[in-house]
Each structure stands twice: as structure tokens, then as C-alpha cells.
């Protein structure tokens, strides 16, 4: 299980970097959000994948460490906000020039 999730992180980073290196703004934004997903999955992995749901009274011990999930929640909110900002910025560049391609015309 751990190896499969580690592989998933690798695939997310690879696709993120590939998209980020492209010319289109839209692709770059998607690439950046894939990179932040990779970081979030990696944090999940740092707690280990064993244990039960960390809700008191719901499941017997041992529980999974709940702290990384709280960290991920914060990181997701931040990356959501920044992605929204990037989309707005990209839209503004589109309005300026009428094309979201990253050309130096």
C-alpha cells in the first residue's frame, strides 16, 4: 500500500512538472495544482497508512495519527485559494491580449 501511494506521488509530481513546462497558461495552472496534490498525498503518507479512523468511540485503537490530516486540510484550503487567484490572473491576461498562450508577442 505504501509503495503504491509513493508511486502515486511520483506520478503526480511528474505530470505536474510536465504540464508546468508547457506553454499554455491553463496547463501551467493545472500543473501547479497537481504538484500541490502530490504534496498533500505525501503528507498523508508521512503518518503511515495503518490504524483505524481517528474518531473517539467510532473505532477501536490503534488510531491513525490525525495530525497530518489536519495539516492537509490547511494545505488544501491554501492551494485552493492560490489556484483561484492564478485563474483570475490568467483571465485578466486573456482580457488584455485575447489569448492565454504564453507567447512574448
Amino acid at each position: 500500500m505504501g509503495a503504491a501511494v509513493a508511486l502515486l506521488v511520483g506520478v503526480l509530481v511528474a505530470s505536474g512538472v510536465y504540464l508546468l513546462l508547457g506553454r499554455s497558461l491553463m496547463r501551467q495552472i493545472i500543473g501547479l495544482s497537481l504538484l500541490s496534490h502530490a504534496a498533500n498525498v505525501f503528507i498523508l503518507l508521512s503518518a503511515g497508512l495503518r490504524g483505524n479512523v481517528p474518531v473517539l468511540g467510532e473505532a477501536p485503537a490503534p488510531y491513525t495519527d490525525p495530525l497530518p490530516q489536519a495539516l492537509i486540510l490547511t494545505a488544501i484550503v491554501i492551494s485552493f485559494g492560490v489556484t483561484a487567484f492564478l485563474l483570475a490572473l490568467g483571465y485578466r491576461m486573456h482580457l488584455f491580449e485575447g489569448g492565454a498562450d504564453d507567447d512574448d508577442r
Binding site: L20, L25, Q28, L32, L35, S36, A38, A39, N40, F42, I43, L45, S46, A47, G48, L67, P68, L71, A75, I78, S79, V82, F85, L86, L89, G90, R92, M93, F96, D102
Partner: peptide, 28 residues
């Protein structure tokens, strides 16, 4: 300027991703 700013945001996002990976490694 918006184009330069986009680069700035993108670079800082990549730096933030390095930060998160480092945090996860440290915690584990």
C-alpha cells in the same frame, strides 16, 4: 507585468511544495 507576476506566483508555489514535502519528511 501580469506575465512577470504569474512567473513569481508559480515559482513561489513550487517553493511552497518543497516546503510541504520537507514538513512531511520531518514529521515522519
Amino acid at each position: 507585468q501580469a506575465r512577470e507576476a504569474f512567473t513569481y506566483v508559480a515559482i513561489n508555489l513550487v517553493a511552497s511544495m518543497f516546503f510541504l514535502f520537507a514538513v512531511a519528511l520531518t514529521y515522519s
